[in-house]
Write a protein that binds this DNA or RNA. Structure first.
Lengths: 212, 212
DNA sequence: TAGGCCATGTAATGTGTTACATGATTAG
DNA sequence: CTAATCATGTAACACATTACATGGCCTA
């Protein structure tokens, strides 16, 4: 759906496939990624369809570079996409899928280890984004409304990454606390009167009506 | 990467392709989605590989149902996946990609409308998740550590959806406020001494060094 | 001289969406 | 009688990852 459009957006500034790959890795990784194996064929297709054009230039270091530029038609398509309303609802979280089924492991300590590892990864990621934020505010001040047009929009996406990942780290803490309470409950199962926690497979009712 | 594994997880309770589709739509949509066109072929492949087995049963309403069940091998593969560490880092956000390039529209009011629409969609989504949360806590109490094993894990994923989408709604507000400050600045460009906001295409330096 | 970066691509495979095709049963 | 729901699938296409293949230039 959108790699095509992201390439068009990036190529408002001319560049090569190799350049684009590093932009993905360095500046866009918090909301999109792409590999060479996808970038090069897509650039070719976009040129065939007239949305891009390219010229070959000698490189300062290494082999010749094929530099792509946006055509008028390409810009039109970019604007059409930008005006088509927010593309929401298709998010996918592999780690949530794992957690959802993790009762199958039958050991809450496994879940705990998983959440700890996840929190570590998220914190690393958050740290990277915050370092970028610091660099930006140091260079351009902390009033984003005074940035350039491009900078303002890019800064907004960066903020969403920081807030969103930050909330996930908090969620890890909340969940770890709940896990610890649950582990404590399970350690003294004979104390309370009623202890509705299932051990092993307590599947009370119909397939998956627990959460609907 | 994981539709396969999600199907294995869901099929700890036997079910048909049709059943699974409604589970995706009703209970899993905040972190994964799938269409019939992908579900049925995947089920077939998993059966060929011995991770699932199926039998045909008459339905109470409508045509015969093919009911799939997890095999021992399938359960092994599920556990392997669950133990392989958190699958993090591949998230994709179409709407962030759009926002990132939205300066190309050359009109901040467009961005404002976009963010307002996005906030509305996210709020709807948040409302749906909160309704589920209310239903769960009403039925099972608000101490998740006392839920069943499956319920505990599922509730944790629900909480992440609520916290994460909640943080995105807050981000929408933050961004809308920044947009309004910027619009105010642009309305009186002659007042201040230095006004480093670009109008039109102020591309100061090299391709995209604004945010790196 | 070895390893890393610059630079472009293909092939095989895997994953996901959309459109199409079929048909029974049930509720209004 | 009609629409919705139940139920399964295929075909074409679009999107994405991984591995492989090539080779020049620069630095340590």
């Amino acid at each position: 759906m959108s790699l095509k459009h992201i390439l068009l957006g990036l190529l408002r500034e001319p560049g090569t496939g190799y350049d684009l790959k590093s932009v993905f890795d360095e500046r866009i990784s918090h909301f999109w990624s792409a590999e060479f194996g996808q970038i090069y064929p897509t650039l070719n297709r976009l040129e065939e369809r007239g949305l891009l054009e390219s010229r070959v230039e000698p490189s300062e270091k290494g082999p010749n570079r094929r530099v792509y530029t946006l055509t008028g038609e390409g810009r039109q398509e970019l604007l059409r996409w930008l005006g088509s309303g927010p593309a929401v609802g298709a998010e996918r979280f592999g780690y949530l899928a794992q957690l959802y089924f993790m009762d199958a492991l039958g050991d809450l300590h496994e879940t705990r280890a998983f959440m700890t590892a996840l929190k570590g990864r998220l914190n690393e990621w958050l740290g990277r984004l915050e370092a970028i934020e610091t660099a930006v505010t140091t260079a351009h001040g902390n009033a984003p409304e005074r940035y350039s047009d491009g900078g303002f929009h890019q800064f907004a996406t960066l903020r969403m990454g920081i807030l969103s990942i930050g909330s996930k780290v908090k969620w890890c803490d909340e969940t770890l606390a709940a896990i610890d309470r649950r582990l404590a409950l399970m350690a003294v199962p004979d104390t309370g009167d009623k202890c509705p926690i299932s051990r092993g497979s307590t599947r009370s009712d119909k397939p998956g009506e627990a959460l609907s």
